[in-house]
Computed example of a mutant assay.
Amino acid sequence: MTEPLVVTRITHSCHLIQIGGMTVLTDPWFSQRTFYHPGEPIALQPEALPRLDAVVISHAHYDHCDLDAFRRYPRKDVPLLVAGPVVGKARKAGFSDVRALEPWQSVQVGDLTIAAAPGKHGVYEVTYVISAGGRSVYFAGDTLLIPELRTLTDRYGPLDVALLPVNGLHVGMPRTKQVVMNAEEAAELTAALRPKLAVPQHYAFTGGAIGDRLFLKSDKDPALFVDAVRRLVPDVPVKVISPGEPLTVAP
């Protein structure tokens, strides 16, 4: 019997993924600071989260690895599966079960299989395929599009959901270095992976009026991804999820 699958967006690239009775949190972000604003509500705070069975963290940037806020989550023994540079930060925040995964390594947590896949960003990053009960979700953090990602279904089988960054973020002065895939590239990956459902993430983020003007350039409209998928692979549906909105994914 296929397990139920529900994805709830908290903000940015932070989601709750519930497969059967297991719950995974992705890339925790629960606060704001100068030049780092979600650009949308933060639907839950750590104290209000359900019981987590695992947490995956793609890389060490604050908007994906907000451990100062996430340390308020009461269960410090929750398994954290993380990119290598995150290990020390997570242990310093008080979490006791912290495991680094390299690309193509996997770990079993209860009924969950969490497999790390490659990523490419401004710092070292891994992405994740999260599977249980015949359901599978790809969580892409905020990676660029790299050739290895096109092989995910060859390695792990069909995907129910692909959570893909879409804002094409450029950073620095004069904002010339791209560090996140854009809507067109995310649609190309959708066409390669052909998930049952594609969900955009990592698009509302803003550096504020000064940060956006001086250091950052990005596309903040997820409709660009919706339109690109309709053009490149029209038989794959796309759903834009508002913060706090639970999305039940049909088998």
Rank of each mutant, 00 (worst) to 15 (best):
E3N: 08
L5W: 04
L5N: 01
V6I: 15
V7L: 08
V7Q: 05
R9T: 04
T11N: 04
C14V: 01
C14P: 00
H15Q: 05
L16G: 02
L16D: 04
I17V: 14
I17P: 01
G20Q: 07
V24P: 00
L25Y: 03
F30P: 00
P41D: 15
P50I: 10
P50T: 09
D53T: 00
D53C: 01
V55R: 02
V55Q: 03
H59N: 14
A60H: 14
H61G: 02
R72M: 13
D77L: 09
G88N: 12
E102D: 15
Q108C: 09
V109C: 05
A115H: 00
A117Q: 09
H121W: 15
H121G: 13
V123R: 14
Y128R: 07
S136Y: 05
S136T: 02
Y138A: 05
F139S: 01
L144C: 12
I146T: 09
L149G: 02
R155A: 06
D160K: 03
M173Q: 13
P174G: 09
P174W: 02
R175L: 01
R175T: 00
Q178Y: 01
N182S: 07
A183G: 03
A186K: 01
A187S: 10
A187M: 04
T190I: 07
R194T: 13
P195A: 08
V199W: 00
H202W: 06
H202T: 11
G207M: 06
G208F: 01
G211L: 09
D212K: 12
D212S: 07
D212P: 02
R213K: 15
K217T: 02
K220C: 11
V226R: 08
R231D: 12
R231W: 14
L232D: 09
V233R: 13
V233S: 12
P234H: 12
V236D: 10
S242T: 08
T248I: 13
